[in-house]
Amino acid sequence: MNRSVTLRQIEVFVHVARGGNLTAAAVRLGLSQSAASMSLGELERLLGGPLFHRVGRGLCLNDRGRSLLPSAEAVLLAFRDFSDRAGGEGGLSGDLVVACSTTIANYLFPSCMKAFLEAHRGLSLSLDVGNTEEIAEEVRKGEADLGLVEGDCADQGLVTEKWLRDELLLCASPRHPLVTARSVPLSRLAGETWIFREEGAGTLSTLLKAFAEEDFFPDRILHIGHTEAIKRAVEAGLGVSCLSRFALSRELRSGDLALIDTPFRPHRWFCLIHRRGPRSAALTLLVDWLLDRRSLLT
């Protein structure tokens, strides 16, 4: 490789390759669009040819660009690891991007984020929120360093580690007649309106799988795309729902919602996902810290 190639040019190449858009890459790197364009153009000149096809306003890797992308990503990972380790005895330094599923982002990770940053002041964390498929794609492309997901991740290019066991609890308005009943079977709830998350949500996929195992399906279903909105609807008496114990803790303490006593208590695992291969010292520290903290969160 030509010795005049700079780390900044490699950064621009990798970010454009990940997003297919020069403007978005410039914003993420804190550059003007013209500076990013000049950097990419100079890299292509130094390497003796284009790395992208120009498709409308977007950029798509050509075969040469695809062959060089893994090496470019490895260069950035090695540099990040060098920067992390250069923190010396005073601690690591660097920036990590963590992508979380909705339940984890809303009810678990903010407190973890605060505690971690207080303990490791040389590091900074950014938080993205999405569903499991979106997060796996971010991690696979290197747009996020770590994913915390509540759904199954079958991507063979990623490492999945179990983090926290979660239960889905059947909740209703405190005024619902079944709140005072004992050991309510699912069959008594067939005629209730069940309020679910939207298609693709990890909570919904876990719940539907559990229903199938019980040979049960509700007569009436209402989909609402946010857990907080579901809780308000249940509180108002619109129906019943089955939500993460982490999402329900505040309302159960305040009495705004109540649990229905039932043997139906499906569970799932919240998992950590990251790319295979070498990890930076900062990412290793974060993963180990989250695994060590499990007993404080259960």
Rank of each mutant, 00 (worst) to 15 (best):
A236W: 02
R294A: 13
L208E: 14
H274Q: 08
L238S: 13
D261M: 12
R54C: 10
I224S: 06
P174T: 02
A212M: 13
D215W: 05
L148R: 06
G94T: 00
A99Q: 03
P266L: 11
R188Q: 07
V234E: 14
L285G: 05
E11N: 05
R54T: 15
E134D: 05
S205I: 12
V16F: 04
P70E: 00
R279D: 03
P263L: 14
V240C: 09
R140P: 07
G157S: 11
T203E: 11
C60G: 04
N62D: 04
L272V: 03
T180W: 04
G237C: 14
W289F: 10
L186R: 09
A154C: 03
L168Y: 12
L43A: 01
F52K: 04
V16C: 09
S32I: 09
G157N: 14
S280P: 00
R197F: 04
L164T: 09
A36V: 06
I273C: 13
E133D: 15
S254V: 13
L117M: 07
L47W: 03
R18A: 10
A115S: 08
E137D: 14
V14A: 10
L207M: 06
T103Q: 06
L297C: 05
E42H: 10
G88C: 01
S111F: 09
I135P: 06
L285Y: 06
P266M: 15
V159A: 05
S249H: 15
P174C: 00
S254N: 15
E198S: 04
L286T: 08
R80Q: 08
I273E: 13
D81F: 00
R66D: 08
A210W: 08
S111C: 02
E198C: 00
V234F: 09
T262N: 14
